[in-house]
Amino acid sequence: MENLIQLSLKGNKRACAKLITLVENYPEEAEKVLKEIHQYTGKAHIIGITGPPGAGKSTLTDKLTKGLVDQGYKVGIIAIDPTSPYSGGSILGDRIRMQDLALNTNVFIRSMGTRGYLGGLSKYTKNALKVLDAAGYDYIIIETVGVGQSEVDIVKTADTILMIMVPGLGDDIQSIKAGIMEIGDIFVINKSDLFGADRTATEVNMMLDLSMNMDRRPPVIKVIASKNEGIDDLIAEIKSHIDYLKESGRLIERRTKNLKLEVVELIESELRKIVITHTDSENRLDKEVINILNKEKNMYEVRDEFLGGINGKKD
């Protein structure tokens, strides 16, 4: 593993891929890897791309990556597709739109399934992100499945969020309003070759103008990803957002806030394990639940007894 880490830090793709497998699947190894690479992380700028299925997110990721690579950057991509809740398997098809990138030395693409995690990202996306960050990718693009409220997850992960829309959303625009207008840093109207692009752009602009409490009005730009049109403008907008984040102190603010959440989650998941082992031992939970059903105890007493037991053990 030590060897894999050293190789990955030097840019070896096979080692990087193996490390991602470790941090995605094996919690104990993940912890070791992430401790070791911690000092090399935090340099990459994370771009989240979200929007409805078929909006052109993968196509846009492909073109955006080419543009960034042409400017001399290294780009890592994490492309996420949903895992089937029935079989636990998935078909990850985003690479179809990124075929030309496979052989580019400055690009690394990894497909991930959501694996039952409801947030639109996989629970382990952040771990994979850190491996790519430490491996020296300047930009990391996360393409997420944009359905329902799942976008909220990307907020906890990305520095710049691109909200992808397409002409003719109609009613969808209304549904998108709730919760989603707030999280986009740049609104991209893709498929602007199709009828209705101007109207969609106008509607999005109107909605953004109505939104209060924004200290930066997000830009709305029209692109045609499939024809590589508007990509330079998009890159300029991304860079302008980065400048804004840095100058206003928002980058630190965002990352601090997200890190706090991450640490709390980490502690919670450990606590949960302690609680489960404790309540599981000698079927204590089952017994106490009977007591609650029989009205011999109430839940709050039971809670306090368990907590007392856990605390007693630690002392």
């Binding site: 089937s84 079989s87 998935s90 496979a102 990894r110």
Partner: peptide
């Protein structure tokens, strides 16, 4: 069918060169 058997299937599409296939296989581990 492989997905329904619980596997993660990375589908790369048509007209792949051997070089592209191997690069993708390595990155996807």
């Amino acid at each position: 069918a492989l997905r329904d058997a619980g596997m993660e299937v990375i589908y790369t599409g048509l007209r792949q060169t051997p070089e592209q296939i191997v690069a993708a296989a390595v990155q996807e581990d």
